[in-house]
């Protein structure tokens, strides 16, 4: 295990999963095999959990609605919040589930085709669960920045083209 190489790989692919291994090897000044090997191990260890694509759905014909749902609940004896979280994250329409400190307990992020779809998920599937006390649903109106990437702003090189 090479910790320095690991952190460099992770840093490089965190914002660009598409980058190819041979290029990374050149940039880090190491063998291609070393990079490939380290990535494979990290995949096995579950450090690298997947390679995603960041999509600005607003620019497509695909209509989606994203909601943040604050969930208050009573933890179950002997199991804490884990069982509740599991019951929520098993729904495929649920994107992310976090245990949160502060005014509520669990934060759920989910996608739906329409507002109605999300509303019915909350009223039918979430609120009805025994240990869930209340839900507060917030709809996302615009994404400015997601996962470190600023949406809708293209990089423009404003520098003078040739300078000493």
């Amino acid at each position: 295990m090479n910790n320095e190489l690991r952190s460099r790989i992770l840093k490089a692919i965190e914002h660009n999963a598409k980058v190819d291994i041979s290029e990374l090897a050149v940039r880090f000044g190491v063998d291609e095999a070393a990079v490939a090997n380290e990535m494979e191990i990290m995949e096995k260890e579950g450090i690298i959990c997947g390679y995603l694509t960041l999509i600005d759905w607003d620019k497509t014909d695909n209509e989606t609605v994203t909601a943040l749902i604050e969930v208050k609940c009573t933890p179950q004896r002997g199991q804490g919040f884990d069982v509740i979280a599991e019951r929520i994250y098993k729904y495929p329409e649920v994107n992310s589930v976090y245990l949160i400190s502060g005014g509520f307990d669990i934060l759920v992020i989910m996608n739906g085709k329409t507002l109605k779809e999300i509303a019915s998920f909350v009223t039918d599937k979430l609120s009805t669960q025994e240990s869930i006390l209340s839900c507060a649903t917030h709809f996302i109106l615009r994404r400015y920045k997601d996962n470190g990437t600023i949406f809708g702003k293209k990089y423009e090189d404003e520098r003078i083209q040739v300078t000493p």
């Binding site: 090189d157 520098r159 003078i160 083209q161 040739v162 300078t163 000493p164």
Partner: peptide
């Protein structure tokens, strides 16, 4: 360079 519109520059010192 300035006269050329779509040049890719590697000439910048900043």
């Amino acid at each position: 360079v300035a006269e050329m519109k779509d040049a890719v520059s590697l000439g910048v010192g900043e």
